[in-house]
Design a protein around this nucleic acid. Structure first.
Length: 462
RNA sequence: GGCCCCGUCGUCUAGCGGUCAGGAUCCAUGGUUUUCAUCCAUGUUACAGGAGUUCAAUUCUCCUCGGGGUCACCA
């Protein structure tokens, strides 16, 4: 069984990059009928992690991603870590180091002055004398100091590190006894049964250290997949400074989960030439072996296109449901079907759709100056009045075709081009030059409102 | 700086020794439309550079260059 996890450190909200690795992990678990777990990495107790976890859960909920079981908090697991620290100590695989912070930084300075790699020198590795007074020891693990560590990575291939280049006896427990990251990830992943780790490739260089922990503890190594970073337009790691990185901001902007997820799944992953993926297809087709090796730049052009695509292809009832978020409760009285039919291929986001709906439903209170200038010629008032008269005289006006017939009649009777009625009528009905088909607009507005808008315009623009 | 990763159109990507280097997006043009949007069609734009290996390299190897990540008693 494939068990994956998402293990954010609590930064307050779910980040767009975090969401992508979460999505990859989720999809891979689902594809294999496995489990997708959630763990909060809050060994730093200063932060309010439960609030952050709540924000993450909210975002997952919006997106329809579900994690299995309870959320694990590392801050609740001190005894577990303590137990393993003790085990390593007892087995002689870790030891207490009494080096003070001052001594440590002194060592670093010397090493830097000599242009050497800064590393712990192992001075307490085999210490059995009397510890110095007044120093609370940290606990360091005995790391191999020579040889090779190979990270077998499903994305990058086998990456080999030389122990002498990167390792030293790193700290696994601070002076206050609290465990450090490289220890707890290994322990938690092992204990949670996580056997496929999908995470950002900024963790690749940490992986050898975690392998040291896995091996010291006798745990089986998971399969690693290190997915490339998402960069900003400057080519740097995407950060909070880069604008909309909070996933929930996309909800605010009017994007739907299906659009956002589809956008994200194609960032760094591909399946031939396919661009559109439903949630079902993602679960069916996703495979981490197809993840790209290189970083990608965050650019939301395609998100807009996808979002427009999904709105265009959504059912009217689904759209109406989405619109309730914008205080729009459409009833059949608003000719909901016609309204959404003509508007849904004009909006990139639900938010835009809401604006378009409101614009049509609201009686214009002003007329765009340029549009008036362009659309209103000498005979425009006469044409509008003639059209008005036709409407008033008609009993059965329901469908767009009914109104269209009247427009054609006026065009024919007055021997004018279609533009002669279309342009001024558009300004009268909508206050501007652009918009959906007028016959549909009038069918939505109904006879009474149509007449009102025409007479308003005639009065205002005569 | 050490170590590690990466390098195909502006962007997301396909490619896994022989392709007119494909798709999508963006942009531009044309068509459809009374307008705008949609839609359709067309077009511009890419293998970072240099050595090898090979009959043949975008593809394999090495070097250079460029970008990124990481080097904590942060995660």
């Amino acid at each position: 069984m494939v068990v994956t996890r998402f293990a954010p450190s609590p930064t307050g909200y779910l980040h767009i990059g975090g969401l992508r690795t979460a999505l990859f992990s989720y999809l891979w678990a689902k594809k294999n009928n496995g489990k997708f777990l959630l763990r909060i990495e809050d060994t730093d107790k200063a932060r309010n992690s439960h609030e952050a976890a709540e924000a993450i859960v909210q975002a997952f909920k919006w997106l329809g991603l579900e994690h299995e079981g309870e959320i694990l908090y590392q801050s609740d697991r001190d005894e577990i870590y303590a137990k393993y620290i003790k085990q390593l100590l007892d087995e002689g695989k870790a030891y207490k180091c009494y080096m003070s912070k001052e001594e440590l930084s002194e060592l670093r300075e010397t090493q830097m002055a000599n242009k050497e790699r800064t590393m712990y020198d192992g001075r307490y590795r085999d210490f059995d004398g009397t510890p110095p007074e007044g120093v609370e020891p940290v606990i360091r693990i005995k790391a191999p100091l020579s040889g090779e560590i190979i990270v077998r990575d499903g994305v990058k291939g086998n990456v080999s590190f030389q122990a002498k280049d990167i390792l030293d006896d790193f700290v696994i427990a601070r002076a206050d006894g609290s465990p450090t990251y490289n220890l707890v990830v290994a322990i938690d992943d092992a204990l949670m049964g996580v056997n496929e780790v999908i995470r950002g490739d900024d963790h690749l260089s940490n992986t050898p250290k975690q392998i040291v922990v896995y091996e010291a503890l006798g745990f089986e190594l998971p399969k690693f997949y290190h997915v490339p970073m998402i960069h900003n337009s400057e080519g740097k790691k995407l950060s909070k400074r880069d604008g909309a990185t909070d996933v929930m901001a996309y909800k605010e902007m009017g994007y739907t989960p299906e659009a956002l997820l589809n956008f994200l799944v194609r960032l760094g992953w591909s399946y031939g030439d396919q661009e559109i993926f439903s949630m079902e297809e993602m679960q069916e087709l996703f495979n981490p072996k197809d993840i790209n090796k290189s970083a990608s730049i965050y650019n939301t052009d395609k998100l807009d296109w996808l979002s427009a695509h999904y709105i265009k292809n959504a059912s009217n009832s689904a759209l109406a449901e989405l619109l309730t978020e914008y205080d729009l409760v459409l009833t059949s009285h608003d000719k909901k079907e016609i309204l959404l039919d003509i508007l849904k291929d004009r909006a990139k986001t639900v938010k835009e759709l809401a604006v378009l709906v409101k614009e049509i439903l609201a009686t214009p209170t002003s007329y765009d100056e340029k549009a008036v200038k362009k659309a209103f010629k000498e005979d425009s008032i006469a044409v509008l009045n003639a059209f008005s008269a036709e409407i008033s005289a008609s009993e059965e006006l329901h469908l767009p075709v009914d109104y269209h017939a009247l427009m054609e009649k006026v065009v024919h009777d007055m021997e004018i081009g279609f533009g002669k009625i279309g342009n001024p009528l558009r300004v009268a009905l909508l206050g501007k030059m652009s918009g959906p088909g007028l016959d549909s607009v009038m069918a939505i507005l109904g006879k009474k409102e149509t007449l009102l808008r025409i007479s308003n315009a005639v009065t205002a623009l005569s």
